[in-house]
Amino acid sequence: AEEIWQQSVIGDYLARFKNDRVKALKAMEMTWNNMEKKEKLMWIKKAAED
């Protein structure tokens, strides 16, 4: 689920960090860890469908 979420937001994060992939990935990891369980559930369901 986290991978699907990352694939959907990586472009936004890379743009925000001027294509600094290391910073973008760290920010994504922090965002994922801070997400509410119900927000993650949507992505977990999406992962299950694929």
Score class of each variant (00 low, 15 high):
A1Y: 04
A1V: 06
A1C: 05
A1L: 03
A1S: 05
E2L: 14
E2C: 11
E2P: 15
E2I: 09
E2R: 11
E2G: 04
E3I: 10
E3Q: 13
E3D: 10
E3K: 14
I4F: 14
I4N: 07
I4C: 12
I4K: 07
I4G: 04
W5D: 00
W5G: 00
W5M: 00
W5A: 00
W5I: 00
Q6N: 07
Q6E: 06
Q6D: 01
Q6H: 06
Q7M: 10
Q7L: 14
Q7K: 13
S8D: 09
S8H: 13
S8F: 11
S8C: 12
S8Y: 13
V9G: 01
V9E: 02
V9W: 03
V9M: 06
V9H: 05
V9Q: 04
V9F: 04
I10A: 05
I10Q: 06
G11W: 11
G11R: 12
G11E: 11
D12I: 10
D12E: 15
D12Q: 10
D12G: 08
D12A: 08
D12T: 06
Y13G: 00
Y13D: 00
Y13P: 00
Y13H: 02
Y13M: 03
Y13Q: 01
L14D: 02
L14E: 02
L14Y: 03
A15R: 12
A15E: 14
A15V: 12
A15G: 10
R16Y: 08
R16D: 06
R16C: 11
R16W: 07
F17Q: 02
F17E: 04
F17T: 04
K18Y: 12
K18A: 12
K18H: 13
K18T: 07
K18R: 09
N19S: 06
N19W: 08
N19K: 05
N19D: 12
N19Y: 09
N19V: 02
D20C: 04
D20L: 02
D20Q: 03
D20T: 01
R21W: 14
R21L: 13
R21G: 07
R21T: 11
V22F: 09
V22Q: 13
V22E: 14
V22S: 12
V22P: 06
V22G: 11
V22I: 14
K23Y: 04
K23H: 07
K23W: 02
A24C: 03
A24F: 02
A24K: 00
A24G: 01
A24H: 00
L25F: 10
L25Y: 13
K26D: 12
K26Y: 08
K26T: 08
K26R: 13
A27Q: 06
A27R: 02
A27K: 04
A27G: 04
M28F: 01
M28C: 01
M28I: 04
M28K: 00
E29H: 08
E29L: 08
E29T: 07
M30Y: 11
M30R: 08
M30I: 12
M30L: 12
M30E: 15
M30D: 15
T31F: 14
T31Q: 09
T31A: 14
T31I: 10
T31D: 15
T31V: 12
T31N: 06
T31P: 01
T31G: 09
W32T: 00
W32K: 00
W32N: 00
W32Y: 01
N33C: 08
N33K: 11
N33M: 12
N34A: 12
N34H: 07
N34Q: 08
N34S: 10
M35L: 04
M35Y: 02
M35T: 01
M35D: 01
M35C: 02
M35F: 03
E36W: 04
E36N: 11
E36F: 03
E36M: 03
K37H: 15
K37Q: 15
K37N: 12
K37C: 15
K37T: 15
K37V: 15
K38R: 08
K38Q: 12
K38A: 13
E39W: 04
E39I: 04
K40I: 03
K40T: 02
K40R: 05
K40V: 03
L41A: 12
L41R: 04
L41M: 10
L41N: 08
L41K: 03
L41C: 14
M42Q: 14
M42L: 13
M42K: 15
M42V: 13
M42T: 09
M42W: 12
W43V: 03
W43E: 03
W43T: 02
W43K: 03
W43Y: 04
W43A: 04
W43I: 03
I44V: 09
I44C: 10
I44K: 06
I44H: 11
I44S: 06
I44Q: 13
I44Y: 11
K45W: 06
K45N: 12
K45F: 06
K45D: 13
K46V: 07
K46T: 06
K46L: 13
K46G: 04
K46D: 04
A47M: 05
A47Q: 05
A47R: 02
A48M: 14
A48I: 13
A48V: 10
A48K: 12
A48H: 10
E49P: 05
E49W: 07
E49G: 12
E49D: 10
E49K: 12
E49S: 08
E49N: 10
D50R: 15
D50N: 15
D50K: 14
D50F: 12
D50T: 14
D50W: 05
